[in-house]
Design a protein around this nucleic acid. Structure first.
Length: 1043
RNA sequence: GCCGGUGUGGCGGAACUGGCAGACGCGACGGAUUCAAAAUCCGUUGUCCCUGAUAAGGACGUGCAGGUUCGAUUCCUGUCACCGGCACCA
């Protein structure tokens, strides 16, 4: 530090801690840390790595570098992780504390479109700005590990991981992801049959392309046709998680629904584990709950209703059994059941077994073969009605070598529904299908007698063109039309009408419901509006049936009996069980679990994202790019704007020369396709979540060119439980945090990572808000449009009307955005860090108040003055150690360490302020020969302060003559004996009211304390001679005398 | 509507398992320094009452109304307000 300039002789305190000197100190230390690689953390196997130390992986949610630069919200979480990292480093840990950039994505592209500058240019510039701004805070990141998701060396592995999913399937038997080669091998071994365009074929007899198509449908990354969220304004489709209240998460534009073939991730296969494994992690309860609710597991039953084209169609007779049930019996050796099937078949008396599959009648021979497969059952008559036609059955029939069946899977004469209340089946008086349900499409092509095609078509058109926003806005009023179709209620045998209405969603369950108006409010409203029958079948305690609204609670079944089933009098739980059993025994239903979670739509019609490493041949089959040919680099494109259209059109299609290529050029293995085969590249790109799904893995080994992560680094840093502390905003609860867990589980199943969960401890920092001013009408006025009157009231300048101060999000329009650069210029980064950590609990939302910053700034000035004479710059040290100060120092060391471990930084700082206040002599700094702390004490104080205010701590530390970096000093020990006093002051209450404080030895027992309490004059006065009826004495705590 | 969270001085907040409510900081007020101001430093500061004032004393006080307890900011019931999430999920 320079001596006082001769031009300013009037300054008597040239060595004061000021904004200017803080900035000078901070830049100097940042420069030195960078030069000396102070925070570089070697990996296992590298020189300088100490395997004896425990590890801590402390991670921030890496930022999305926007053109606007850093916001005061960013450094909040970053300072917290930095304190935590510096603390554990001092406690002797190897600390992985990295930083990088989440740089692909919509906002960068929108900004580029606005400015006309290519996103790679604007994004690089934004990254440089962010890096410069972040560096100014003195965070102890290991910058040698920095990368951006847009680096080809990184997204190469993003594409590679996607290919791992592409090359995997979910094995339901193991409940985990496995390489799809295992499935192919299994099919070949069993020579199982699969459905093909020309009927069911044995694996060995299938053309290769048919096998491939079948396998393609099993992949974890697959192309699926789904009703997707289409946002015309953004020009792209969005995942469910990115749609909030029918609007896009980014920009708030309306979203429509559109059936589309897109790349999907089979996240639903992991639904149960994504819920279950939340037990393994230490996460905020609110976030766990949000994930659980988002996944939305719900137990119930699937029930199949026979569809009728006219209400008085003859009832399907007979007795039914599913092939799945037969298979179960066969494999389980359930001879009793199989005998019963045979007996039923005989009893029904027909001459042949009738098999109906997918609405088509097939011969008896095949089912006979199936039933006799075990050699134990020999049905010789009767009719067995097979209602299942799902994949299980197809595979079953394939196993039974029934390969002559025609399985088109198309026309069905059943309507399946999901319900959580199978016990109310007797009360189902109509059915509803979603307007997008295939049944509606079918009826429009082939109407039933009662179908009003015009009305039906009009309704479906209307529903299709209504955005989710409109649907929700109109949710109060139910709409719908009768389809002309009927269904048979299997419990009552009645034919009930099938309606279509948009209150039933195609995306949940089967897209169809059985309506029980008496016990579901939505059904009740619909039934009332359209005059449909309402039949009460449950008596709900506390909710008497009035006929004015539905009673949705559980209770006792009534009016629920037919010829061979009675639920009457049963409680709901038991009634559910009995009903499902009854349905199952007839092949009409089964217990099932349904999820709200849907498969993850992974395609985006945007330019600024990772290309998919996959191409299409002329027949539309997709082929993967070989690993060794990654990355598939994003082509340079001058016109990268999204294409405005009524349907999604990926802008990458404009890169003609890139899109139209050959298999060899695109890097597809010659073993899959001859190199000269003409192919089209996939033109959709991945969503910005792709890069953030695994960046925490790459930080462990960012320069590995052979693998996405080296296994030594992975095992060391992620270990059994993943990242040790992960801090970021709560807004990612059902986005990034769900997606990353899903990717991690896939990688875990495939043996590529060793922990089942990626983030052991998660913490959300609260949002930093700002003040705004509210007018009487509730609207907000900008911060620069109001003034404070001398009397303290605040008025709007333009109108002179009073406004009230409220807390609101920072926004440009409210003119209350705080720029971190300016705050650092005015106070320094150490003060900024202290202020943000001192504002309140890390997790709480709290208002920024620039006025309060002087508090932490004065604290640092006081600390400075405690150590350094402001006039001479000389070090001030106490000659001796004051025992009271020594004791307080021990307590502070203990308190700060413990507070850091539970992320209670505000109380840690308060403790250090108390210590500094106590050590500062009340007379102020008038005597330069004496300070309040001796060299050793000051050193210890600087150590515990250094995680919070590293620059000023390091500066004073070195001025004391130390040469090593404070950052790697050991955390000072504290003597537990000094944490307790010999004599303590405890309160004495009389009848619960505080009357006195007495001093007692800390070790005094209850009797001793009571004796002293009663002897106290103030207590004696309060007792006024009355006898003490009861004395409650908590040694070391308090005394309460009851009179 | 359902789920979760939060309500403490003028303001941000503290009080870890039921035991001295308001630590620490801001602001305000008074003082020091200064020609003056800013900055800085020192002191006082929950509200009300009593007393001429001080010392001292008293009452009230953790959104509101109850409850449990010797004792409740902390536990329970009800209720209000605000914030966040989900929302026709069958």
């Amino acid at each position: 530090m320079s001596e006082a300039a001769p031009t300013a002789p009037q300054d008597e305190t040239p060595h004061r801690y000021t904004a200017r000197s803080a900035n000078e100190i901070e830049l100097r230390w940042q420069d030195r840390w960078a030069r000396e690689d102070t925070f570089r953390q070697p990996n296992p196997g590298e020189p300088g790595f100490d395997a004896a130390r425990p590890k801590r992986y402390v991670l921030d949610m890496f930022p999305y570098p926007s053109g606007a630069g850093l916001h005061v919200g960013h450094p909040e979480g970053y300072t917290a992780t930095d304190i935590f990292s510096r603390y554990w480093r001092m406690r002797g840990c190897n600390v992985l504390h990295p930083m990088g950039w989440d740089a692909f994505g919509l906002p960068a592209e929108q900004y580029a479109v606005q400015t006309g500058v290519h996103p790679s240019v604007t994004t690089r510039k934004a990254i440089d700005t962010f890096r410069r701004q972040l560096s100014r805070f003195g965070f102890s990141y290991d910058w040698s590990r920095e990368f951006g998701t847009i680096d080809p060396g990184y997204y190469r592995w993003t594409q590679w991981i996607w290919l791992q999913a592409y090359h995997a399937w979910f094995d339901p038997d193991l409940g985990k992801a496995r390489p799809i080669a295992e499935l192919a091998e299994r099919m070949a071994r069993k020579d199982a049959a699969i459905p093909t365009g020309a009927g069911t074929r044995k694996w060995s007899q299938c053309p290769e392309v048919e096998r491939k198509r079948w396998l393609d449908g099993k992949r974890l990354a697959y192309i699926g046709e789904q009703t997707v969220n289409w946002c015309p304004k953004l020009g792209t489709v969005l995942a469910n998680e990115e749609v909030i209240d029918g609007r896009s998460e980014r920009g708030g534009h309306p979203v429509l629904r559109l059936p589309l073939r897109q790349w999907m991730f089979r996240i639903t296969a992991f639904a149960d584990r994504l819920i279950e494994d939340l037990r393994l992690v230490d996460w905020p309860a609110s976030t766990r709950t949000m994930q659980e609710e988002w996944i939305g597991r719900s137990e119930g039953a699937e029930i199949r209703f026979e569809l009728l084209r006219e209400p008085d169609a003859p009832a399907r007779p007979r007795w039914t059994v599913t092939l799945a049930r037969i298979e179960e019996a066969l494999s389980g050796g359930d001879a009793e059941f199989l005998e019963m099937v045979a007996a039923k078949a005989r009893e029904q008396g027909g001459s042949a077994v009738e098999v109906t599959l997918g609405g088509r009648r097939v011969g008896s021979r095949e089912i006979g073969m199936l039933l006799t497969l075990s050699g134990r059952v020999r049905p010789n008559g009767g009719r067995v009605h097979v209602v299942d036609a799902d994949e299980d059955v197809r595979e079953m029939l394939a196993i039974a070598k029934v390969d002559s069946l025609l399985l088109d899977g198309g026309v069905r004469d059943e309507l399946a529904v999901f319900t959580t209340r199978p016990d109310t089946l007797f009360g189902a008086t109509y059915m509803v299908v979603a307007p997008e349900h295939p049944l509606v499409e079918r009826l429009l092509a082939n109407p039933a007698a009662a179908t009003d095609v015009t009305a039906l078509r009009a309704y479906v058109e209307l529903a299709r063109n209504r955005s989710d926003v409109d649907r929700q806005a109109d949710a109060k009023v139910k709409t719908g039309v009768f389809t002309g179709m009927y269904a048979r209620n299997p419990a009552t045998g009645e034919a009930i009408p099938v309606w279509t209405a948009d209150y039933v969603l195609m995306g949940y369950g089967t897209g169809a419901i059985m309506a029980v108006p008496a016990h579901d409010q939505r059904d009740f409203e619909f039934a009332t509006l359209f005059g449909l029958r309402i039949r009460q079948v449950v008596e709900v305690p506390g909710e008497p049936w009035t006929g004015e609204r539905a009673t949705a609670g559980e209770g006792t079944a009534l009016r629920s009996a037919n010829a061979d089933l009675s639920l009457d009098g049963l409680p709901t739980a038991e009634a559910k069980r009995r009903m499902v059993e009854w349905l199952a025994s007839r092949g009409l239903g089964r217990r099932t679990v349904n999820y709200r979670l849907r498969d993850w739509l992974f395609s985006r019609q945007r330019y600024w994202g990772e290309p998919f490493p996959v191409v299409f041949d002329r027949d539309g089959n997709h082929w993967p790019v070989a690993d060794r040919n990654l990355p598939v680099t994003l082509p340079e494109l001058a016109d990268f704007a999204p294409i405005e259209s009524d349907v999604p059109v990926p802008p990458l299609g404009k890169a003609r020369a890139w899109v139209e290529t050959t298999a060899g050029e695109a890097g597809v293995s010659a073993a899959l396709l001859p190199p000269e085969t003409p192919v089209r590249r996939e033109t959709n790109t991945m969503p910005n979540w792709a890069g953030s799904c695994w960046y925490y893995l790459r930080f462990c080994d960012p320069r590995n060119g052979e693998s996405f992560i080296g296994s030594d680094a992975e095992r060391y840093w992620l270990g059994e439980a993943g990242v040790d502390l992960y801090i970021g905003g709560a807004e990612h609860a059902t986005l990034h945090l769900l997606y990353a867990r899903f990717w991690h589980k896939m990688l875990f199943d495939l043996g590529l990572v060793s922990s089942p969960e990626p983030f052991r401890k998660l913490f959300h920092q609260g949002m930093i808000l700002s003040y705004a001013y509210q007018r009487d009408d509730g609207t907000l006025a900008a911060a620069d449009a109001v003034e404070t009157r001398p009397d303290g009231s605040v008025v709007e300048v333009a109108t002179g009307k009073p406004v009230t101060q409220v807390v609101a999000k920072m926004s440009k329009t409210l003119k209350n955005v705080v720029n971190p650069d300016e705050i650092i210029a005015d106070y320094g980064a150490d003060t900024f860090r202290l202020y943000e950590m001192y504002m309140g609990p890390l997790e709480a939302a709290k208002p920024w108040n620039t006025r309060d910053i002087v508090g932490p700034f004065r604290f640092l000035q006081r600390l400075w003055r405690l150590a350094i004479d402001e006039r001479s710059g000389a070090i001030l040290l106490a000659a001796r150690s004051d025992p009271a100060i020594e004791k307080l120092l021990h307590r502070t060391i203990h308190k700060v360490g413990e507070a850091v471990e539970r992320l209670s930084f505000n109380t840690a700082i308060a403790a250090m302020i108390e210590l500094v206040n106590a050590a500062t002599r009340p007379t102020g700094m008038t005597d330069p020969t004496q300070g309040g702390l001796n060299r050793d004490q000051l050193g210890r104080l600087l150590k515990i302060l250094s995680p919070f205010a590293p620059h000023v701590a390091e500066e004073i530390w070195h001025r004391l003559g130390n040469v090593t970096a404070l950052a790697h000093e050991a955390w000072p020990p504290h003597d537990p004996a000094l944490l307790v006093d010999d004599e303590i002051e405890i309160p004495v209450q009389v009848a619960g009211k505080l009357k006195a404080r007495i001093k007692v030895p800390a070790k005094a027992d209850a009797a001793e304390i009571e004796r002293r309490a009663v002897a106290d004059p103030a207590v004696a006065a309060a007792l006024a001679g009355k006898p003490v009826r009861k004395a409650i004495v908590v040694p070391g705590r308090m005394v309460n005398l009851v009179i």
